[in-house]
Nucleic acid binder design. Structure first.
Lengths: 289, 289
DNA sequence: ATATCTTGTGTACACCATAAACAGAAAAGA
DNA sequence: TCTTTTCTGTTTATGGTGTACACAAGATAT
């Protein structure tokens, strides 16, 4: 069997999308390794997650893991998808904003329970079924907003990356607080040698004296509200433009591919697709199916 | 001399804020180490930056570096401040938005020239004079917008973290492209084993067929516009509320501490500070000075 | 019974940051 | 000028990482 090693991404895909449940009575298995790794990462963070320690926790040798998991990177992929499947998809309220916000808060909650999730980096991370379901769910939140397809994707990615970035800064402080035993406040509070050099920076000093650093805004709440506001502004703007363009002229059936309104020419055959791109898409779709 | 080792942050502060220019004729110095490290990180990324390689590049032994720099982490602090001093502060156009956007684009450009900047993580990074000047400059961009001090700080932090997060994803793809020799497009394009499992996800499939992934939005441009829109929405909203609250009632001198409008009571002594917090601030200021 | 596949083991390698003790030179003090 | 201290660079050693490779025992198929 062509069981590709660490170099073969398709093996990783098979592992991620395998039907679970066929766990052997005894011995190792991918599922058991993943569970042990998640426990370990929960307890010690991502930098504390080593193949040696996972193996020790299971009572096997280090290299035995490689019989079931291609390598550490692929193990991380499996862990990510595993924790995403722990809870059902967030059922938000009405409207795109409430639903997208619910997704963001759910992602935030996930990273609170498993802080290492935010530390897992790298493009080329293969998504598993749970990650894709989540992603699809987020995309569904902004469907029907009038945004172009690429804009929907960008909006969802923006929210996702925001949550991730925010969680990453949080877990970094937490890690230092645990490893050093000194809280963030204490540590920065003791940096007098730094503060005494900040006098000659006017705005910073003014804000300091105005108490801006005494009761800071909640970084996640503030940022999430701004990002959603920004997306809302885009949606409103485009809806307005759309209304102006097509007022009294279009208002026929929407584009069969992307659902956006279609310009209707005053004379000639009525258009079915909103753009040449959508026309091509539909064509290829007919060819493939 | 109490030359604290790696455990002493104050030593790091001294190094960061030292007057440069007193470079010895020969031998090592913090400045030379930092320059060599920046060159190395530019060429090989942050994971390729090891004390060994820096020392080799300078023709000394590994441990010789520790006579001038407390450790790798502190070297990173020094590197960050060094590259931030390479170019003058961005002189944006008029208005807070143009200036804040100029800062964001400048930060983006910095990370394009030195991709490893985005990879340097961890709270408790000591800022040097250049970093503080930059931060002060960004804060100055949103001064006078009517935002509360903590909101100004949060807004600037949001933009900064956005740029950093965006740059981080970019450098991660670049690193993989270089180490593997396969471009991101090629790699994802070869993942048929993944795509064939995505049919049962409706929104994702619809957006795929609508061409949303063929011409994606520029992630940085899209996100920056949304974030700035979001901040603008907050500013506008607060300005409106402020106008309603104080119309025909305030419009006296602004708060002496933070500059925001002050509610003027209909009877009694006119207020000088906008809030009890600002009053306390001013009091402490008088005590200290 | 023989061959093949699966699973777990032990060894080995090339890295990494940095602690500790040491050696020579330069500078300061007597 | 002689001695003592300080500065600067070196050498050696420790404990950690992921994983390639060769090997061995058991299960399964032919």
């Amino acid at each position: 069997m062509a069981r590709g090693g660490a170099e073969d991404p398709d093996h990783g895909v098979e592992l991620l999308w395998r039907e679970t449940g066929e766990e052997p009575r005894q011995g190792l298995s991918a599922g058991r390794i993943v569970r042990a790794a998640v426990e370990l990462a929960d307890a010690e963070g991502l930098e504390g997650l080593s193949m040696r320690k996972v193996a020790e926790r299971l009572g096997f040798t280090t290299m035995s893991l490689y019989r079931h998991v291609p390598g550490r990177e692929q193990l991380l992929d499996l862990m990510l998808d595993a924790v995403r499947g722990e809870r059902p998809l967030p059922t938000g309220g009405d409207g795109w904003r409430a639903r997208l916000e619910a997704c963001a808060r759910d992602g935030w909650e996930l990273r609170r329970r498993h802080p290492w999730v935010a530390e897992v980096r790298g493009s080329r991370r293969l998504p598993g079924p749970n990650a894709i379901a989540y992603y699809d769910h987020m995309l569904g939140a902004v469907a029907g907003t009038g945004l172009a397809p690429a804009q929907m994707i960008a909006a969802v990615n923006l929210v996702g990356r925001f949550v991730d970035a925010e969680a990453l800064t949080l877990v970094e402080t937490a890690r230092l607080e645990r490893s050093s035993g000194v809280s963030e406040q204490e540590w920065w509070g003791a940096r007098d040698s730094l503060y005494q050099r900040l006098d000659r920076f006017p705005t910073l000093t003014a804000l300091w004296e105005a108490g801006g650093y005494d009761r800071p805004e909640d970084s996640f709440e503030f940022g999430l509200a701004r990002v959603l506001d920004g997306i809302e502004a885009l949606i409103d703007r485009q809806r307005d433009e759309m209304g102006d363009e097509t007022s009294g002229e279009s208002s026929g059936a929407p584009c069969r591919v992307c659902g956006r309104p279609v310009d209707r020419p005053t004379s000639g055959r009525p258009r079915v697709y909103c753009s040449r791109a959508c026309q091509q898409r539909a064509y290829r779709r007919r060819q493939d199916g």
